[in-house]
Each structure stands twice: as structure tokens, then as C-alpha cells.
Design a protein around this nucleic acid. Structure first.
Ligand SMILES: NC(=O)c1ccc[n+]([C@@H]2O[C@H](COP(=O)([O-])OP(=O)(O)OC[C@H]3O[C@@H](n4cnc5c(N)ncnc54)[C@H](O)[C@@H]3O)[C@@H](O)[C@H]2O)c1
Ligand SMILES: NC(=O)c1ccc[n+]([C@@H]2O[C@H](COP(=O)([O-])OP(=O)(O)OC[C@H]3O[C@@H](n4cnc5c(N)ncnc54)[C@H](O)[C@@H]3O)[C@@H](O)[C@H]2O)c1
Lengths: 213, 213
DNA sequence: CTATCTTTGTGCACGCGTTCACAAAGACAT
DNA sequence: ATGTCTTTGTGAACGCGTGCACAAAGATAG
């Protein structure tokens, strides 16, 4: 029976082993003292807890450059997500196949959501249309939204929104880049408490929430 | 002179006004007591601190579905980023214009980086090529990388990597989605300390770092 | 010039997440 | 069986970020 110790996993993930054990403990006591964790069993338990054992249908709204790339992306299916429908407002696109799937018109949005039992929606429309699309999705029953449009969406309680803003990702890099450059120059002022981070330690890379356009 | 108080800004951003003031204080004392902050001056100071006043040339490596979408995206330029070059390994693509810019071959990667003084690179190649591309970028002088390939990149100290993993974004949504569904069912076990979060509060949405493929 | 009023800047305390450290559990050898 | 050795699970301490609360600063009116 292949096993791993919390120490090995922690080293691989770059975290503290005690934290890893404590995290696992919230799922239950799946380890064996003196041995470690049964890999297969652990993987199953974590997958189940994270909701990866079920199949999640998602819809993508806004099939432009980005939406088409997402539709073509094979990495979703392997993680338990199924693209149930592609939706766009452009009548000229209706019926056009993208990633082997016909694009459907926004007129049918509500019916598509309900017919497929979709609870997760992806918005890749222009920023101006995002809030409106969001509202229709929520009204139709969607309770989780992945938003690529550079707008803050207003949603009712109970609806989760994750915003992916690629410009901000670049800004965070530029911010640290600037730090590296002028490190020795300004050693007089107070140094802001910016955590030295690597792969996505903090949410937004520990950068202030308020920013001008 | 248009001004804003920390209270107003905090309300708009959904954060505590004391935290906002303390954050601002790291940049200096730019407010006026009894009045607030001069909007124009504040915007400039924050922009400068975040490195938005300079122009950052970036290269995109891997001009496939996603890379092309990124190249076409106009939101970067407006934030101070300039796409200096598009690079792909496919000889058939060399010279082909994407977003009004000819795709260049990976053979010239080092020269392109150095000629343009690029310090930020975007990787949108298949996962298998990402580490190798990363190493060439770093060797050529790139010190910040935005990685879209679903791989953890190994980089030397001093190089920042931000990974954007869209599957994980969906997984986080699915995780919370599952919570909502089975909320009343399992009120017996210990409830893991998952922060109720909205728009990107924490880095990875407060989800364990270790996950199976 | 003095008084009053608003809002900043920040010391301090609280709370939460991380880490330490160890007792308990179990495997495995003798 | 008994003992030894490894690794888990977790109570307790630590440290840090967040929020409270207020003194100081400055504007504005009288
Ligand atoms: N392309 C990128 O790399 C990139 C990067 C970051 C953010 N974004 C954001 O993602 C969004 C899409 O970007 P894009 O480059 O694909 O734009 P795009 O213009 O290529 O595509 C937008 C699509 O949305 C459709 N659309 C417009 N209004 C709609 C509505 N009300 N309902 C349904 N569909 C509608 C359009 O017909 C079009 O097909 C934008 O908000 C953009 O800012 C894109
Ligand atoms: N498309 C998406 O929405 C999406 C979503 C999430 C993640 N990703 C990831 O982004 C990456 C790109 O996705 P895609 O859909 O654009 O794939 P793609 O196959 O369409 O494009 C990949 C491009 O990279 C080029 N390439 C291959 N090896 C290279 C090398 N060594 N140097 C330079 N260029 C090279 C190829 O010629 C091709 O043009 C993949 O790792 C994918 O997993 C994509």
C-alpha cells in the first residue's frame, strides 16, 4: 500500500507539515500513525471534500477571443467540469461551432441553464455587458460565477464570484519588479509589510484593494 | 480641490477605514486632517508606488488559443503594459500577424528579451514546454513570469512567478457550491475554518494547497 | 486669535492562523 | 507479548494582521 507522510507532502508543497496535518484533520482522521497516509484513499477523500467527484456543468457566456480559448481548453474536463453550453449575443455566431459545439444565442440563456442544471457560469463578455449577463445568470439559477470582465459584479448573498483580472496579475508582478530595482535606493522610509510570496501565496499578492482605473 | 475621506473610500472598497488609512500611511502622509485625501494626488502616489507610471514591456510565449486572446486583449495597454513581442515555437507561425504583430520564433527569444529590455514574461505554452521556456526567459533576463500552463515552475531566488490556473478557479467555486448544497445535511462534523469570502479576498480562495492531478 | 469640528495617523489590544512540541497510536521487530 | 520506533493528531504558545479608539493636526467659522 503506497503511503506518504505529512512531512513528504509538506516538503513537496512548500508548507509546514503541522499545518498540513491540521488541515487534513478537518476532513477526518485518514492517516495511520507511524506510517502516514494511504495515497489513494487520501486523494479520494480530498477529491470528495473539494467536490471533484461530481460532474459540474458550466456555461460560458461571451464567445470572443477569450471565451473561444476557454471553450477549446481541455483542462476543464479532466478536473470534472463539463462545458454544457456556449452562449453569445451576436446573432451571426448562433449555430457556429466552436470547439465542436454550436454557439447558442443569449435569448435561450434561461432555458439552457435550467435544462442542464447549471450552477456555475463563466462570463467572458465585454465589461459593459457583464453585470447584465450576471443578473440573468443569477436569476436563472446560477450561484457561482467566474468573471473575466474587468468589472466588479454586484450579486445577491449566496452567490459566489471569483474575478480573474489579468491586468492586475501583471500589475502585481510589476510592483514587485519595481521593488527589486529600487531596493537599495530607498532604505530610509518605512518598508510596507509586503509578504515575500511565490506561487499565489496570498489572494491578490498582498497588494492594496483600492486602485484607480 | 476634489477630495475623498478614508471613510468613503473604505465603504466603496468594502474594507475597514482604519486599515485603509494604515495602508496609505506606508506610502507617506498624503492626507489632510479634517479634509481627506486629494484625489488626483492620491491616485498619482498610488500609481507611482505600484509602478504604473512606467511602461512595462512584456513578451507572450506560446501563441495558441490563449496566447492569441491575450495578444488581442486591449486591457493591458491601458494599464501601462506594452506587448513587445509574440513568440512561438511553431515555424509555420513565424511571421504570421496576430493582433497586428508578427509572431517571432523561439530561436530569437534571447535577442528579443534583451533588445526590448523585457523583465516580464507571459507563458501560454502547453504544460510540457513551460519549464523549459521559463528557464530560457530567466536566463535571458526575465525576472517576473505570469504562468498560464498548469505546472508549478521552478525558478531561482529573485524571480517572481504568478500562476493563473483557471481549473482551480472553477474548483474553488465548485467547492463552495457543494458547501451551499450540503449545508444543513452535515452539521455534526467539525466545520473547517473556511473564510466567507467574495471577490478574491484570499489568494487561492482559502483552499488547501495540496491537490491531486 | 480662539474655538470648534472634522478627519488623519497610529499606539495598542484583540483575534485568528500558523507553528511548535508532545502525548497517543499503531506498525513492526524480537 | 513486550519494546522500540515512526508518525499522526492536537493542545498550547507565538506572531502578525486587523480593527478600535484617540490624540494631534489642520481647516473653517466667529
Ligand atoms: N482576451 C483576453 O486575453 C482577456 C484578458 C483579460 C480580460 N479579458 C476580458 O474578457 C472579456 C472578453 O474578452 P475578449 O477578448 O474575448 O473580447 P471579444 O470582444 O473578443 O469577445 C466578447 C464576446 O462577447 C459577446 N457579447 C457581447 N455582449 C454580450 C452579451 N450581452 N451577452 C453575451 N455575449 C455578449 C460578443 O459577441 C463577443 O463574441 C472582456 O471583458 C475582456 O476585458 C480578456
Ligand atoms: N485555452 C485556455 O482557456 C486555457 C485555460 C487555462 C489554461 N490554459 C493553458 O494555457 C496553455 C496554452 O493553452 P492553449 O489553449 O492556448 O494551447 P494551444 O495548443 O492552442 O497553444 C499552445 C501554443 O504554444 C506553442 N508552443 C508549444 N511549445 C512551445 C515552446 N516550447 N515555445 C514556444 N511556443 C510553444 C504552440 O506552437 C502553440 O501555438 C496550456 O498550458 C493550457 O493548459 C489554457
Amino acid at each position: 500500500m503506497p503511503t506518504v507522510s505529512s512531512e513528504e507532502l509538506a516538503a513537496a508543497a512548500g508548507v509546514n507539515s503541522a499545518k498540513l496535518r491540521k488541515d487534513f484533520s478537518y476532513l477526518g482522521s485518514y492517516g495511520t500513525r507511524g506510517v502516514g497516509y494511504d495515497v489513494e484513499y487520501l486523494v479520494y477523500q480530498i477529491s470528495r471534500e473539494l467536490g471533484l467527484t461530481q460532474d459540474w456543468p458550466v456555461v460560458i457566456v461571451g464567445i470572443g477571443n477569450l471565451g473561444a480559448a476557454l471553450a477549446n481548453y481541455g483542462g476543464f474536463a479532466s478536473r470534472g467540469f463539463r462545458v454544457a453550453a456556449l452562449i453569445d449575443a451576436d446573432p451571426a455566431m448562433a449555430g457556429t461551432p466552436v470547439a465542436g459545439m454550436p454557439v447558442q444565442h443569449t435569448d435561450d440563456l434561461e432555458k439552457i441553464i435550467s435544462d442542464n442544471g447549471v450552477s456555475i457560469g463563466v462570463i467572458s463578455t465585454p465589461a459593459g455587458a457583464a453585470q447584465q449577463v450576471c443578473e440573468r445568470l443569477v436569476a436563472a439559477g446560477v450561484t457561482s460565477i467566474l468573471n473575466f470582465a474587468p468589472t466588479v459584479l454586484s450579486v445577491p448573498d449566496g452567490v459566489d464570484v471569483r474575478k480573474v483580472d489579468l491586468s492586475i496579475e501583471l500589475q502585481i508582478l510589476a510592483f514587485h519588479e519595481q521593488r527589486k530595482a529600487g531596493e537599495e535606493a530607498s532604505d530610509d522610509g518605512v518598508v510596507p509589510p509586503v509578504a515575500a510570496k511565490q506561487q499565489r501565496k496570498g489572494p491578490d499578492g498582498d497588494v492594496p484593494a483600492v486602485m484607480p482605473a
